[in-house]
Design a protein around this nucleic acid. Structure first.
Lengths: 233, 233
DNA sequence: GTGACATATAAGTCTGACTTTTTGTTCCCG
DNA sequence: CGGGAACAAAAAGTCAGACTTATATGTCAC
């Protein structure tokens, strides 16, 4: 499940990264490379590589004579998938989930509008297929199967938008949807209204109706906001 | 101007990173750490740190026995500020600028709506101040001064939204606005209509009129889209 | 042709010595 | 007593070399 897994360097990162993003070291805390190397029982070379990566994520800053200082949260590269995963796995999972859901509510409607303009026939077909899969698994506690098609559906929308920035949010949306199913209250079958909206959205995209696609997506994401008790605008 | 500057490691990164994001090595190309170290005249230790950072950006993947392979563009962490800067400085600057402007058009209206709800009195004041600064420099070829206040304005909106993900896009918006002023056609004074919209937006936020703030921002970003000949939805 | 095995290759790791920058202190002089 | 210059220490930065490990690829027997 963890991505970095590979290599000694990745294992250290998978421990230290979550610790920092969880706020275990208050901003301004100073870590020393040598001490960290000792703690993780790795060589300084490996430790330096880890620090470099953390630095590229703006989680820490390494300065001579002072050490590796932890940066305040507003500095972090919160769009880094690795950072997102770490935070979703840690204590401020709820806050992160809210931020991401608001982000979705901004991005996805526009992406859907663009998808209606740019989607290839293959993508339209895929979309319909996903929507059918959602319908087929919308009752009878087939939550996993439903989730699978739901994730695929939104991924296609984001990709079909033709905007690389939108496309890269596929993983983020997947995390949010998966989080809702697995961690939040979601024992019952999915909301039938939501399922219908997805079917209609696939329709709208197929018919190149950008305005309708955008509106439908707005309804979908507003539903997601309401689930988290975020006031809808 | 370049951020990484510090250290030998940063200088190598500032050369190799742009080369990769410019597409000088087709996806699947293989680089060898030793050769790179020779080419840049640095030790392997330094080179390895560089590779680790590039790997964390998903620009390359390092595998044993094969080398450092360049990944296809869709894999890249396009939200990494470093990557964004590199691409804006390279050959696909136009494409990048379009992607970012579309992203803006999705994010900023929602951010403005949230800002109308959440902005502190200080932020409202700051906003008005920026708008005034824009008005004051909207004629007489005071482009730099205008840009300064424009950037500050949008930064406040994004921050005041209270959403950390939105707030982190401040730098991106700054790059886009700055790029428009410096590289694109922008010899004349800014569009008076745009200036008015900003003044009205500051008003709307101050009066907590979320709907109006969102609508006004949508008009602003649509103007930005039109400048780049992107069809408005 | 298929599978097991051998080999070469390039990244991964460790160690120790040395350099450079920066901070904090000390000490001298105004 | 205060301020500035010289100094010392600390921690990251850099380098070189030896060794380990994974793995792609070629080889050989069956």
């Amino acid at each position: 499940m963890s991505t970095t897994g590979r290599g000694l360097h990745g294992r250290v990162l998978d421990t230290l990264g979550p610790e920092i993003t969880a706020g275990e070291y208050p901003p301004g805390s100073v870590l020393r490379t040598d001490e960290l190397a000792q703690r993780f029982d790795v060589s300084r070379s490996v430790m330096r590589e880890v620090v470099r990566v953390l630095e590229s994520m703006h989680l820490v800053r390494s300065r001579r004579r002072v050490g590796v200082t932890v940066l305040p949260a507003p500095e972090w590269n919160v769009y880094d998938p690795q950072v997102i995963r770490w935070r979703l796995a840690g204590v401020d999972r709820p806050r992160q989930l809210r931020s991401l859901t608001v982000l979705r509510s901004a991005i996805e409607p526009v992406a859907a509008g663009l998808a209606a303009r740019n989607a290839t026939p293959e993508q339209c077909a895929e979309l319909t297929e996903c929507a059918l899969g959602m319908v087929a698994n919308s009752s009878g506690h087939r939550l996993e199967e439903y989730l699978f098609h739901d994730v695929a559906f939104h991924r296609v929308i984001l990709t079909a938008s033709g905007n690389e920035m939108f496309a890269r949010l596929g993983d983020v949306v997947a995390e949010v949807l998966s989080g809702r199913t697995h961690h939040e209250v979601m024992f019952e079958d999915p909301d039938p209204a939501a399922v219908t909206l997805h079917v209609q959205l696939a329709e709208a995209v197929r018919e190149r109706d950008a305005a309708r696609a955008e509106k439908l997506t707005r309804e979908i994401t507003e539903g997601a906001l309401q689930e988290l008790d975020i006031l809808a605008p």
